[in-house]
Simulated scan of single mutants.
Amino acid sequence: MTADSTATVRAWQAQSLLLGYPDEALLARLDLLTQVAGTLDHPVGAPLRRFIEHARTTAPGQLTADYVATFDHRKRCCLFLTYYAHGDTRNRGMALLHLKQTYAAAGLALTDDELPDHLSVVLEYAAIVPDHGAGLLAEHRAGLELLRLALHHCSSPWAAVVDSITATLPALAGDELTAVARLAAQGPPEEKVGLSPFSLQGAQR
């Protein structure tokens, strides 16, 4: 593994934590995450340091309320990546099952309340299996960009974390730009069937 890829793995690990629910365990790790961010190139590390400073200076109750308001109540700020590609359709159910099987093969076990397409989980997997994880993130590049734009639109501090993620990935081009424009205009597909045994209800990371 090269120095660059090692730094990317550290970035994905930090980003995974910072996109999780901001509980006491996360707040206790902010000093360590600041150290990690300081080892990363400016486009990746600087946004993380900016968010960490926000988390450090915001009252914990306010931070958790903002997290819920941002990610649970705004459809365009969805952290579940297959939603952008498949919406609530049968195809999404199959994509979730495939992801869970992929993680199990790599030794990543999820709890019952974790969906495998949550961005934090995808980043955690990418840090464990970087080559395949990078491809998985690239596969959802259009959804990530729509999430990034939506977070910036509502002036969310978590936009900085997604800025950091996209800085680890190739720039959007060609069909990906078209996919972002389509998602922004039309939203994900709709067909409210086929998600069993997975459900967004009560899922958290």
Rank of each mutant, 00 (worst) to 15 (best):
A142D: 00
L144R: 00
T82I: 04
L172E: 08
P116K: 09
A173G: 04
A173V: 01
L137E: 05
Y83K: 03
D117T: 11
A159N: 01
I128T: 12
A138K: 06
A138T: 12
S156Q: 11
P170G: 10
T82R: 08
A69V: 04
Y125C: 06
D113P: 03
L147W: 04
A104D: 14
V162P: 06
A150T: 06
E139V: 05
A55G: 10
T111V: 13
H54S: 10
A109N: 11
L97S: 15
H73Y: 14
T102G: 09
H140I: 04
A126P: 12
E139Q: 12
V161Q: 04
L97V: 13
A127G: 13
A59E: 15
T111E: 15
L63G: 10
L81Y: 02
L63F: 11
A142Q: 02
L119S: 07
A106R: 12
A167W: 09
K100S: 12
C154D: 15
A105K: 14
L108V: 09
T111Q: 15
I52D: 06
D117S: 13
C154Y: 14
Y125F: 15
L172Q: 00
E176Q: 12
A59K: 14
R56T: 12
T57P: 11
L115F: 03
L99N: 01
H132S: 14
S164M: 05
H86P: 11
K75C: 10
S164R: 07
A65F: 00
E139D: 13
G93D: 04
Y125M: 01
Q101C: 04
L123H: 02
P116L: 06
W158P: 06
T89C: 08
D112I: 12
R148P: 07
L151Y: 05
F80E: 13
A142E: 00
T70D: 11
L147F: 04
D163W: 05
G87K: 03
A69N: 05
Y83G: 05
G143N: 06
Q101A: 13
L123Q: 05
L151Q: 01
V121N: 06
L79Y: 05
A55R: 09
H153E: 15
L99M: 14
L169F: 04
Y67L: 05
C154V: 15
H152E: 10
H132T: 11
C78K: 02
L115G: 09
H86C: 13
L177K: 01
T111P: 04
L151N: 01
I52T: 00
N91F: 09
R148H: 14
A171M: 09
T89M: 11
R92K: 10
D117Y: 10
W158C: 07
T166P: 00
G93Q: 06
M94P: 01
G107C: 02
